[in-house]
Simulated assay, not measured.
Amino acid sequence: MTGFDVPTRLGRIHVRDVGEGPPAILWHSMFVDSGSWDRVVPGLAARRRLFIVDAPWCGASEKSAGAANIEACADAAREIVAAIGDRCGSDVVDWVGNAWGGHVGMHLAAVEPSLINTLVAMSAPTRPIDRALRRRIKLLLPMYRVIGARGPVWSAISTTLFTDRTRSDDPEAVALLRRGLRVSGRSMIAAIRTAILNRTDLAWAGARITCPVLFVTTDDRGEWTPEEAREVADTMHDAREITIREARVIPALEQPQQTVDAVLDFWAQKAEESPLPATIADN
Rank of each mutant, 00 (worst) to 15 (best):
A175Q: 11
S123G: 11
H14V: 08
E228T: 10
I209D: 03
G66P: 14
E241W: 06
D261E: 10
I25H: 01
G35R: 05
V263Y: 04
G21L: 04
T118N: 00
W204A: 15
R9V: 15
T160Q: 09
L276E: 01
S29G: 02
E254C: 02
D38I: 14
R240S: 06
M143T: 03
V40P: 02
G85H: 12
R131E: 15
E272W: 01
D75Y: 10
A99D: 14
R16Q: 13
A191S: 11
I84C: 14
A65R: 14
D130S: 10
I70N: 11
R135V: 04
A99K: 02
R49S: 01
W267M: 09
V183A: 03
L276I: 08
T159P: 07
D201N: 14
M122R: 11
D86W: 07
T210C: 09
A156V: 13
R186Y: 00
P171H: 08
T279P: 01
L115M: 12
W267N: 04
A268E: 03
V96H: 06
G19Y: 07
I84R: 14
A55C: 01
L26M: 11
D130Y: 07
V81N: 10
G19D: 00
L141V: 15
V260A: 08
C211S: 03
E227P: 02
P142S: 05
F162L: 11
A110W: 10
